[in-house]
């Protein structure tokens, strides 16, 4: 189990119908690539977040498959359309089976 995993999301709290909003997400995670060795020469096993999804009211915005070449503390920035008031749901899937979630409500301006 990865420790101190904390998702952070920056999305507007208000938008008008059909507006394009920019979303930034960051999650603290070591993203151990499986390439590094410890001081005894043993390979440190891979432990990364391998998938990230963003949905709005159940409709997909972006679905990212990640490999070990994604940096520590994976960061994503993308744009979404907000057709109505609702919730953005962000989900990160860890190699060890953990799922980290965050939601952000958007109200109509």
């Amino acid at each position: 189990m990865a420790e101190n995993v904390r998702p952070r999301v920056k999305a507007p709290r208000q938008a008008s119908a059909g507006e394009t909003v920019t979303i930034k997400t960051l999650i603290s995670h070591p993203m151990e690539s499986g390439q590094r060795k410890d001081s005894d020469g043993n390979t440190i096993p891979r432990s990364i977040i391998h998938r990230f999804t963003c949905e709005f009211n159940g409709e997909m915005v972006v679905d990212v498959t990640m490999e070990p070449a994604i940096s520590t503390n994976p960061y994503f920035e993308f744009e979404a359309v907000v057709p109505e008031a609702g919730d953005f749901k962000f989900t990160w899937y860890d190699d060890d089976g953990d799922v980290y979630e965050d939601t952000q409500s958007v109200a109509m301006a």
Partner: peptide
């Protein structure tokens, strides 16, 4: 893809119906 990495795969972005633009930015290891 990072052509010179030990494993070339970096990420695959799948854009859904609510993606306003098919663009994204992230940070990668090389």
């Amino acid at each position: 893809l990072a052509m010179g990495n030990p494993t070339p795969g970096v990420a695959q972005f799948n854009f859904g119906p609510l993606a306003a633009s098919q663009s994204a930015s992230t940070r990668i290891r090389l």
